[in-house]
Design a protein around this nucleic acid. Sequence first.
DNA 1: CCGCTTCAGTTGTACCTACAACCGATGACG
DNA 2: CGTCATCGGTTGTAGGTACAACTGAAGCGG
Lengths: 169, 169
Amino acid sequence: MAEWLSEDEMAAWVRLVAVVELLPGVLDGQLRRDAQVTHFDYHVLAMLSEAPDRTLRMTELATRTNATLPRLSHVVRRLEERGLVERAPCPWDGRATNARLTDAGWAKVRATAPGHVATVREHVIDALTPEQVTQLAGIADAVLRRLDPDGKMAGLPGDAPGGDRRRAG
Amino acid sequence: MAEWLSEDEMAAWVRLVAVVELLPGVLDGQLRRDAQVTHFDYHVLAMLSEAPDRTLRMTELATRTNATLPRLSHVVRRLEERGLVERAPCPWDGRATNARLTDAGWAKVRATAPGHVATVREHVIDALTPEQVTQLAGIADAVLRRLDPDGKMAGLPGDAPGGDRRRAG
DNA sequence: CCGCTTCAGTTGTACCTACAACCGATGACG
DNA sequence: CGTCATCGGTTGTAGGTACAACTGAAGCGG
């Protein structure tokens, strides 16, 4: 537990920082050019598109997009202004708000997904061997448990049953 | 190549996106609380602190911090206003600007580094096995070559012919 | 029923980043 | 030498995010 990082650790860290710095720009760039949407916008729309009735509560949506509630609130308001999402108060809990994907929003996701997936493949997945893909899942999973100990974000499979974090492929 | 992602690929991708979304916040948070500096600010100061005469040209500094020139220009101006950095036109090239870490900036880096390294260890490095650290370096390296094909950023041990072993003026 | 606390979201402000327009310096060329 | 293209960097501005303060609904104890 040195105060500094070893050579191997530093090599990994420097590269990880670079990826974290550059990847968002690449994702945002493609989506903005081709669909006039940020990566976070797309993430919101995608999560809604997978939900039953294309509807989720704001809190749940925030969880699935790794976002804070204020951030999500601003973004959903803008998406609503663009007609891609609509909001309605939850009938059973006066405090809650349900966000629902409109038909236009659904169409947007359908039209945007292929290009986005292609970008993900081109810049990440296809750069890796199948083994590395598996390793990446394990590594990111381990890091996530530190970044988000309660697992509130990212919808990780709960650490309660049978989960062994110290295994890498 | 399929139009969608396989289950394994999706598992890796979802987790990577979560890390990319959450990690900057954790790094920024610690540095802002403990040193009133963003992670990018710190990166700038750290790169200068490692350079000969604590001086680098703006373009070279942008490369080493994976940043665009406009972004760096704004940040360096603010750092200069805080007395952590100073700028001076390069005597040999009237177009170029040299950024130099002041004594105050040097002190700031020295005082800030331990806490930052501890955060990096706590949330990333120590979450991984030594094998995973090595794997991460390989994975991030492979991804970087796609994100930044020319190796302009990130100062990768590049496939660039001839190498770019330049000295700062 | 009243008051307190917590929950779910929203809003307002400050800050940071991206993009594009811009400026002076440099270097190639005739 | 002039002209032009390019380089290195700065500045203006629009847009997105973070943080904190706020509103209103639910839940709980008395």
